[in-house]
Simulated assay, not measured.
Amino acid sequence: MEFKGSQRINASRAAVWQWLNDPQTLQRCLPGCEHYERAADGSYDAVIVAAVGPIKARFKGSARFLDLREDTGYRIEGNGSGGIAGFGKLSADVHLEDIEGGTALHYTATAQLSGKLAQIGSRLVGSIASKFLADFFLQFEKQVSECEDAASP
């Protein structure tokens, strides 16, 4: 499954970069995230509770941020297991671009699912993933905007 999109964020590229690399911000913004913490090897361990169609599960996984290009972007590689619900792998490229009045965040991602998740069907999983992304960006924009407003004179 492939996902591609862009999101406008009303903040400078440097501020967006800072918040994209802040574990507490990401934990607050990821829907259903119960735990998000840096591991000893530099990756991030996460626990996310999600419902995918009739399947509700607690997914435990990890994410690694690679090819970091300060204020520009990075690559994310992650995986998670939801027990009987199945297993998922994700790779995503994130790129930031200056636009008038803020920053455009562009992403392309590929996901692979196995187990019951794979049996649900790509159309349903795709619509749920799109909602997850929309919820993430709504919260992220809110967090960044609030911090930018507080920093303004």
Rank of each mutant, 00 (worst) to 15 (best):
S6E: 13
Q7K: 10
Q7R: 11
R8L: 14
R8W: 14
I9L: 06
I9W: 05
I9G: 05
I9K: 07
N10Y: 12
S12W: 09
S12L: 12
A14D: 12
A15L: 08
A15D: 10
A15K: 14
V16K: 07
W17R: 04
Q18A: 03
Q18P: 15
Q18V: 13
W19H: 08
W19F: 02
L20T: 10
D22K: 09
D22E: 06
D22H: 10
Q24Y: 04
Q24P: 15
Q24F: 09
T25L: 04
Q27L: 09
R28S: 09
R28G: 07
R28E: 05
C29S: 10
P31Q: 00
P31K: 02
P31D: 00
G32F: 06
C33T: 07
C33H: 05
E34H: 14
E34C: 11
H35Y: 10
H35L: 11
Y36S: 02
A39F: 13
A39T: 14
A40R: 15
A40I: 15
G42C: 05
G42N: 07
S43A: 10
S43M: 09
S43T: 14
S43R: 09
Y44T: 07
D45I: 15
A46G: 07
A46T: 15
A46Y: 10
A46S: 07
V47M: 12
V47G: 08
I48V: 11
V49W: 04
V49K: 09
A51F: 13
V52C: 07
G53D: 03
G53R: 03
P54K: 04
A57C: 02
F59Y: 06
K60T: 15
G61D: 03
S62N: 09
A63L: 08
A63M: 05
R64H: 02
R64L: 04
F65G: 01
F65H: 00
F65K: 02
F65V: 11
L66C: 04
L66W: 01
L66M: 03
L66F: 04
D67M: 09
L68D: 00
R69Q: 02
E70Y: 00
E70G: 00
D71F: 02
D71K: 01
T72V: 04
T72L: 02
G73S: 01
G73V: 01
Y74W: 05
R75F: 01
E77Q: 12
G78W: 04
N79E: 08
N79F: 11
N79C: 07
G80P: 06
G80M: 01
G80L: 05
S81H: 10
G82V: 14
G83A: 02
G83R: 04
I84D: 01
A85D: 00
G86K: 00
F87T: 00
G88M: 03
K89Q: 05
K89R: 11
K89L: 06
L90R: 00
L90C: 06
S91C: 08
A92P: 06
A92C: 08
A92S: 05
D93A: 05
D93Q: 13
H95G: 08
L96T: 07
E97K: 14
D98V: 15
E100V: 15
T103V: 11
L105V: 15
H106R: 10
Y107E: 04
T108H: 09
T108G: 11
A111G: 12
Q112I: 10
Q112K: 12
Q112W: 14
Q112E: 13
